[in-house]
Design a protein around this nucleic acid. Sequence first.
DNA 1: CTCTACCCCTGTCTGC
DNA 2: TGCAGACAGGGGTAGA
Length: 272
Amino acid sequence: MPELPEVETTLRKIKPFILEKQISRVIIRQNKLRFVIQPDLATKLTTKKIIGISRRGKYLIFSFKSGAMIIHLGMSGKLLLLPENHMPMKHEHVTFVFKNGLALCYIDQRKFGAILWVDDNPLTHPLLKSLGPEPFSQEFSAKYLLAQAKKRKTSVKQFIMDSHTVTGVGNIYAAEALFLAKIHPEKKINTVTQAEFAKLITAIKTVLRLGIKKGGATIKDFAFLNGSIGSFQNEMKVYGRENLPCLVCKTILKSKRLGQRSTVYCPRCQKN
DNA sequence: CTCTACCCCTGTCTGC
DNA sequence: TGCAGACAGGGGTAGA
């Protein structure tokens, strides 16, 4: 689930319920995620009040007067708000119980996510400090991409999916953005012009914005009821549509593995 | 330095 | 139906 739009939507929806709220206890049922959860995480969090919640790339940062918790949802992680006395869900590995009777539940069947405690500035943590710019920031410009591309030889899709180039563009949004920008995913990055980068940036922002908008549409149900996942999937033009006709030119869409990830594109619309 | 292959884990789908 | 194998939206890292 969690690409940048889902992480952003999760953030927006849980924030009003847990900001300025005090954690009364933390239940850890499974401590082996991508990394083993620090044994003192519960101790560090108990009685602390969340004073800030923010996002960096696909990482969520929960700040306290001293220290912070970083959560990454991996490929299958979710954060649900449930009543404190709920029955634990399947794969509910960690539960943060608040004094106000709500519980923030970390659910992750594949355990690719991460929950970390840091005593100092979370942005200087090794996982976060070398991340590229946020896709909606000023820094994410055609000029910037052109400069980055000079050092690289990879394909444009792998380039924009690299979190050191720009954060938060996962497989789906990369495929959708390249289709929108009419750029072939295998195009070598050193042949992309500044004008093409400008188009690509616009396309990335467009699909991410649409994702946030569509994710937000059902996230309230998501957070409180049934875990449904938003409706961006109905907007996808290429992802998951291999062997179906292109919505623009009717050419059959092709699928290929690129850097171990499935990649769908229109061989006619997207120029190499 | 960059790039590729592999890995963490479980659930679901496809083909035999 | 049963079962094996491929694959899934992420991303760190070993080794070339």
